[in-house]
Design a protein around this nucleic acid. Structure first.
Lengths: 120, 120, 120, 120
DNA sequence: GTGGTCTAGACCACG
DNA sequence: GTGGTCTAGACCACC
């Protein structure tokens, strides 16, 4: 289910982080579910187990999943996943708005630009 | 006039690229103007001249400025700068929209989200 | 009666060791009492029997309980449990004091810190 | 200046984290100072550069230091280091108090125990 | 079996 | 030169 693009500039471990977060938001991974084991996912994706560990550790840092040594990784809070993602998106939009304002755009013109793109 | 943030995660050469593009859009740099020399700007910003060269090369590559060997770099087309920036912004918005749609958001909810952030 | 937290970072076999020690100190387990059998406790807690064995072995190793092959495990000495726990606590405090002293704290400031926390 | 004990049960990367935090608190590392480079410290301590990276990343996660790719790691906030350490110590004391209370100790007897150990 | 740590060594981007 | 990513493979503790 998890897919990566080895040619992307985004590091593999980050891609996996986003994928796990996404699947938690889409309720494909639910609370208390066990994630694919580090070794299994490494085999499936054809990457090194350390890379998976790094991805899962990143998820754990952000309180999305939890490791139980000897057992595996388990989904902690899909709610956190959603909040985390929304925060990211809001920051991204605010960053873009700020850059546009710095370029002389007023809010009305930004609004028109965004609207045009959304319904393009 | 050009300012960089050494603590930012954005590479310095990219920051300079964006700043040059921005100053062309704001008509601070106008057509045919000469840009600061590589060495001068390197001194002013306290960075490696190679970094300035890389930034200027990036500008040239995108048809914003032009090098005249032995003389320096000169503004080519503020119009190109504006088009280039708009293309970037549109791509950024489209990327965010795509990610949100992948997370199950429909266009109406994306619209509400963006609107809420813009007039926050 | 014995409870564990599978989400804790403390290994389960250690948690069980501490619980047994605690129940001996609180006179819930008294001298000569038989402990729950390895299999029974494993079922009750939903953990691997090997984990229980490891916990009981640890208790035995510290002279808290005694195995009688073919019969089970029996409480040896609640007194030892208490002494063992006190030694642990004293070591923990001494470790913390040492670390604080290494950070430049004098005994008076440590005293104030601890007092503040105790009666917080 | 940084020292590790390879035989300790505490992972090397954590030992280094604590050492860096300590040296920031003791003003051996001051704001904006550059830390030893990853490769240099790896050579000095005789460990793998990846281990140093992991230690430094941990420091960065906790907002103690900051990486500037291509330049090195730099001290961010000795104040954060102090706050972070104090939080750790307070949690440790509270944990010990809680365990003692669970064993039937009242605050007065805990107070006497700690006082006795501190001025032992 | 599981995750966690560590080593050795390669390659890349940035300055 | 710097840090960042990734691989391959080892060893450990825990279950």
């Amino acid at each position: 289910m998890i897919q990566i693009d080895p040619r992307s500039t985004i590091p593999i471990f980050e891609q996996i982080f986003y994928q796990v977060r996404k699947m938690m938001i889409l309720n494909i991974f639910n609370e208390h579910d066990q994630l694919p084991t580090v070794r299994q996912l490494a085999r499936d994706l054809g990457v090194n187990p350390n890379t998976i560990s790094k991805a899962y550790s990143l998820c754990e840092q952000h309180q999305l999943i939890q490791s139980r040594p000897g057992l595996g990784y388990f989904v902690l809070s899909p709610e956190n996943a959603k909040n985390h993602a929304m925060k990211d998106f809001k920051n991204s939009f605010q960053d873009l708005f700020k850059q546009l304002r710095d370029l002389g755009f007023n809010d009305e013109s930004i609004y028109q630009l965004v609207k045009g793109e959304l319904y393009a």
